[in-house]
Design a protein around this nucleic acid. Structure first.
Lengths: 228, 228
DNA sequence: TGAATTTATAAAGATTTTGTAAAGATTATT
DNA sequence: AATAATCTTTACAAAATCTTTATAAATTCA
């Protein structure tokens, strides 16, 4: 396989430098843009395998950049954002960002996410089953096994779990989950969501007090861990 | 293995062209139809290995084309649909479409799905009888035996049971069962379905109060237990 | 740190779905 | 036409699922 290309869109030269070195050392080819406009042009003229997008660009609102990209670009877009910018992060995820990282971030974490997304971006959709650790889900037959034993899930539990797994490694916002599982313009079911997450953890986790599969992203949503 | 043949039924010449080139470059033989009628004729005169069907054809409702095809065509039918046409998509899946793609679609995704389906459809060779526990069904003679004793089933009972067994291990939704057994756009027969399930259990299960073969998946449908 | 917000969980309550018997309607058979 | 067989509908009970309530625990932020 040829080298994967990553487009970095960020106005801070320091961050770009850091990303460039880190990514290059890990075998990726890096293309850099310092403005939204430049980023959009580069992405269009030479579509990369993944985009790292700073949501706080000076020349154009990051959300709008994201939307413009998503009109045609389907591969992973990971948002970079400063801390305490939850509104923006959630907005971005609702606009179909693949994931987010808050600056400053650990490069190890960044690399892990990138690997997960690049690996999954093609393969995942066509598979009719997944194995994650000792958990196995078969979308065709609608069955879930833990340690090879069938687990009984209710309709909603299954819908929720399969949604999480189909988006493994990716944060799903509360709003997104609610829309997908309970349908749109539903009364607020966020308490129900919490109850169902708890139920799922009891059935699916080894120790439901220390969830290793269904991860809470406080104030944002939930994430099914990415299988390495 | 000789080249797989794919029939494309779509009124938009642009899309047909795109599909034709993509598919041909990937080793498939492509047959094209620009109207529902032409598609039906071509499919019948020269059955392809897979059909790509645009659900928004001008001359005839896509659902009706799908139903007509499904009366005799068992291989994969993948639906092409514009976005935000969920009702149509769900309807199509209920009418036994194999999968769907919303336009615009990534060609990579399309190819992946096609590969997955063509791969599977070979394996799905139909057996002419099955034994599950002490139950034996012969599809050729339409007979069912329990502990080697012939069981008398009515036509509907047999249709329902054989549908379940042919899909053993997999959940069949109420809607799917209703479409398959009672035919499409039937008044809601879900109460009848419940009655028939009860009748079948009395005839087929060892203890109809503890069904071990025909399993209820609450709010979803029924599943004939997996024999593996 | 300590208040405020968010998340987790158990248990009660409400709702929906499913199962079953039996009556009524329809279709097929003699 | 009468009878038998099959299918649908009705009515109600039982089971399963989902939502809400109440409260505890954890997390975030000033």
């Amino acid at each position: 396989m040829s080298r994967q290309e990553i487009l970095v869109i960020d106005d801070e030269a320091q961050i770009r430098k850091l990303l460039e070195i880190t990514l290059r050392n890990n075998g990726y080819k890096v293309i850099e843009a310092s403005t939204a406009n430049e980023g959009l042009v580069l992405a269009a003229s030479h579509p990369p395998d993944l985009i790292l997008l700073d949501i706080g660009l000076p020349d154009e609102n990051g959300q709008s950049v994201l939307k413009k990209l998503r009109e045609w670009y389907q591969k992973p877009i990971i948002i970079l954002s400063v801390q305490n910018d939850e509104e923006n992060i959630i907005n971005a995820l609702d606009n179909d960002a693949s994931d987010y990282l808050t600056k400053p971030f650990r490069t190890g974490e960044l690399l892990a996410r990138i690997r997960a997304f690049i690996r999954n971006s093609d393969v995942l959709e066509e598979k009719s089953n997944r194995t994650i650790g000792n958990l196995f889900i078969d979308f065709k037959t609608r069955t879930v096994k833990k340690n090879n034993e069938l687990i009984k899930l209710t309709a909603t539990e299954y819908t929720l779990l399969s949604l999480l797994i189909k988006n493994e490694g990716r944060v799903l916002t509360h709003q997104y989950i609610l829309n997908q599982v309970w349908g749109p313009n539903q009364a607020d079911q966020s308490q129900s969501l919490r109850v169902f997450i708890a139920q799922l953890r009891k059935k699916v986790e080894n120790d439901h007090n220390n969830p290793e599969l269904i991860i809470t992203e406080s104030r944002v949503g939930y994430r099914f861990v990415s299988s390495t």
